[in-house]
């Protein structure tokens, strides 16, 4: 790890960002940016291409796709909450065949790098979706959304137990090209996220994506019933950011070398930097896209600036920087005064 000149150029003169090398090696992918979209917040990239050039960001992570077409849940499907929102979409989507034919083909034609998020109600369904993608090709990596209900486990999500999480990852690994990186997307609604992370890595995941939404609930005080038709929903947005940063930190502490995609409430380059310092190799931007459709491109530029302001020359040098051993910070002034009082210490 290169040591940056931490105290230098704090204020930032507006040009430091341009010098920072933003290329990101994530698993076996070589990406021009560490900034990705979060699954379910960018559809399949096409709409966002109106607002920024989707080929400039690291990759488009597509909405979790299942084997068959799905209508999703009834409405209302969302509620705004303080600095966040609840959603209960229910994985509406066209099914993997239509996705490959229309969405994936478009992304490839457009020249965007694509990480396909997949979901299923059984480990076998995950496996079938992965197998279809293997045949289709044109996929940089697979993100496995294990935060969906397990049909044979009373609808408990796969992500909440180490064994079920590992079972899904094993099946996806078996059905995928050996060269394709697989990211397991973890739920923070567990007692020990590190245990789940270790089990999915042991089961063959290349890395992890953290975090998915947290389960929450809002009441509609006019109808005096739950605000969402699905009763509960997933909480996202800046409200969950500190939880997400903590999850990245804990997993990075336990596993120094695995690729980590961090996400949860990233609204600015400054927020993205928090995740990278905590140990994320790349970051995904979700809910903020709803507020600012060009957020991923803006956050890329702001992150470069934040890194440059702190003297980093490469984004990769900042990954996990907050984990460095604690040495007393010695800036130049402190050094000189230390030297003057040298005779006292000792």
């Amino acid at each position: 790890m290169n040591t940056p000149i931490v105290s230098a150029r704090r204020a930032g003169d507006g040009s430091n960002g341009a010098r920072v090398d933003m290329f990101t090696d994530l698993a076996k992918m070589h990406l021009p940016s560490p900034v990705l979209t979060a699954s379910g917040c960018a559809a399949a990239g096409r709409e966002l291409d109106n607002y920024f050039d989707i080929t400039t960001i690291g990759a488009v992570v597509t909405k979790s796709i299942m084997l068959a077409p799905r209508s999703g849940r009834a409405t209302p499907r969302m509620a705004e909450t303080p600095s966040g929102m609840l959603n209960s979409i229910g994985l509406q989507g066209p099914g993997v065949d239509s996705f490959i034919e229309h969405d994936l083909a478009w992304l490839n034609h457009r020249g965007a790098r694509t990480i396909v998020s997949i979901a299923g109600g059984t480990p076998e369904e995950f496996g079938k979706v992965a197998a279809k993608l293997r045949i289709a090709g044109g996929v940089e990596a697979i993100e496995v959304n294990i935060s969906c209900p397990n049909v044979s486990d009373r609808g408990q999500v796969f992500a909440c137990r180490a064994e079920t999480a590992a079972q899904v990852i094993q099946t996806v690994r078996r059905n995928s090209d050996i060269k394709i990186p697989i990211f397991a997307k973890l739920s923070p609604d567990v007692t020990d996220i590190v245990e789940i992370a270790q089990s999915v890595i042991a089961a063959g995941a290349t890395g992890v994506s953290v975090i998915n939404t947290l389960l929450g609930m809002v009441m509609n005080t006019s109808t005096m019933r739950p605000a969402l038709a699905g009763i509960t929903g997933g909480l996202s947005g800046p409200a969950i950011r500190p939880i997400a940063v903590r999850c990245v930190w804990d997993i990075r502490s336990a596993m120094p070398d695995i690729p980590i995609i961090g996400m949860g409430g990233i609204r600015s380059g400054h927020d993205a930097l928090e995740f990278i310092l905590a140990g994320a190799n790349a970051v995904s931007v979700g809910t903020s896209i709803f507020n600012d459709p060009s957020a991923p491109a803006r956050i890329h530029a702001e992150l470069a600036q934040e890194l440059g302001d702190r003297g980093f020359l490469r984004v990769s040098d900042a990954v996990g920087y907050a984990h460095r051993p604690h040495t007393p910070t010695v800036d130049s002034e402190a050094q000189s005064s230390d030297a003057e009082w040298d005779f006292i210490t000792e």
Binding site: C41, E47, T75, P76, R77, N87
Partner: peptide
């Protein structure tokens, strides 16, 4: 008028059942 989170087509919150040209209902 349906509740909207993104307004640009990426989130799937604003759906309602619509009968298509092929007589099939979709969200």
């Amino acid at each position: 008028e349906e509740s909207m989170a993104c307004g640009i087509g990426v989130c799937m919150t604003c759906v309602l059942p619509i009968i298509g040209d092929d007589s099939v209902t979709r969200m």
